Simulated scan of single mutants.
Amino acid sequence: MAVEPTMTRYIRPNGFAAAALAAAFFGLAAAPVSAQDAGSGHIVTIGAGPQVYPKYPGADSYGLYPMFIGGIRRPGQPMPFSAPDQGFGFGLLGSDSPIDIGPVVSFQSKREEQDVGAPVGDVGFTAEVGGFAQVWIGPNVRIRGDLRRGIGGHKGLIGDIGADLVLRDRDRYIFSIGPRVRLSNGRYQDAYFRVTPAAALASGLPAYDPPGGGAHAIGVQSGLTWRTGRNWGLYGYAGYDRLIGDAARSPIVRDLGSRDQFSGGIGLFYEFHVGL
């Protein structure tokens, strides 16, 4: 079983505090990473930084959020690759397998009417739980797809299909870039893009009911992990999505928001060895 470093897109304050407590706990038994650690214990990666992304799908306003960086691996293993937009997860077939599957969970922050600027309804905080499948085509190209169901919040189905070109110098740096297609069902699109007759009457927007699910965005994601020393490193990412189809035709996007969705973040991380 392989546990991959994860750069989250959303962390609630209590989750951020838990990460800090975990760092303090590991720090009690931590030692700097060195060659003599090979073959024993684990190498733990932990860090944090700021990130910005739209306050909700289709927004033209952005929020500043904490970004958590974390992972664990055996000494001697290279840092596993993790794309900026993939959620928490782990592979069931092992880090050396070119094909892998496993569970994944992502989070979507709450959408409030005041952020939209019209009484179109709130969408609660959503935990998206599902699974992924991926395949490596040679050492530098990964194709991955995942499907998740919202628990609370939008309660819809959402999925991502993407490919990444991955360039690396073992543990000195990892650079990735690749295209994305975002998919969702009607329930997800109703939650974020529908304007009910009652909401139209209250807001002055035209009523709009997305006819169904399908692709709602296309985009690109890029990330860079760069070790600046034996234990310290930097992580950064940048992303862009363009809303398409029924999502792009929504008055919430067309009149109050934006089809263009940018994101990015940068953080500092520290690696240490634990003898567990």
Rank of each mutant, 00 (worst) to 15 (best):
H42F: 14
A29H: 15
Y62W: 03
A17V: 00
F16R: 06
P50Y: 04
I72R: 02
A31T: 15
R73K: 13
G39Q: 06
P84S: 15
P75C: 07
I69H: 01
V52K: 04
S82R: 10
R9C: 03
A29L: 12
I69N: 05
G58I: 14
G47K: 01
G71W: 01
I43F: 03
I72A: 04
I43N: 06
A59C: 10
G87Y: 00
V52D: 07
S61V: 09
F81H: 09
P84F: 02
S61C: 06
F88D: 08
Q51I: 01
P78V: 13
D85S: 15
S82Q: 10
G76Y: 10
I72P: 04
A83F: 02
I69P: 03
G47E: 01
K55E: 14
A38K: 12
R12Q: 12
S34A: 10
A22Q: 14
A20D: 12
P84D: 06
I11S: 13
V33H: 05
A83E: 01
Q36E: 14
Q77H: 15
G15C: 12
G39I: 09
D60Q: 08
A17Y: 11
T45V: 06
K55M: 13
L28D: 08
G41S: 11
P32T: 10
F88I: 12
F16N: 01
I72C: 03
P66V: 06
A24Y: 09
A18P: 01
F26R: 06
P66W: 04
G58D: 08
P84L: 06
G49M: 04
R73G: 10
Q77P: 08
S34R: 02
A59D: 00
M79V: 15
G39K: 09
G41F: 13
Q86C: 05
F68C: 06
L28C: 13
Q36V: 12
P50K: 05
F16Y: 13
S82A: 13
P50H: 02
S82I: 00
A48S: 10
G63H: 02
G27R: 03
G15A: 14
G41Q: 07
G70R: 04
G15S: 09
D60C: 09
G76M: 12
F68E: 06
I11M: 12
R73D: 05
R9L: 11
F16Q: 00
F26E: 02
T45Q: 06
I46D: 04
G41Y: 04
R73Y: 09
A35I: 14
G63M: 03
P32H: 12
A38W: 13
G49N: 08
G87V: 08
A18Q: 11
G41V: 07
G49P: 03
A83D: 03
I72E: 02
Q36F: 12
R74V: 11
G27W: 08
S61A: 14
Y10V: 05
R9I: 09
L21R: 10
R9S: 13
P66T: 04
A20E: 13
A17I: 00
A48L: 07
A48K: 07
T45G: 09
Y10K: 04
P57F: 09
A30H: 05
T45Y: 07
F26V: 07
P84T: 00
A29Q: 15
S40Y: 14
Q51W: 05
G58M: 12
H42S: 14
P75Y: 12
Q36G: 11
D37V: 13
Q51N: 10
A38S: 13
F81G: 09
M67W: 01
F68Q: 11
A59P: 02
N14K: 03
A19Y: 08
L64N: 09
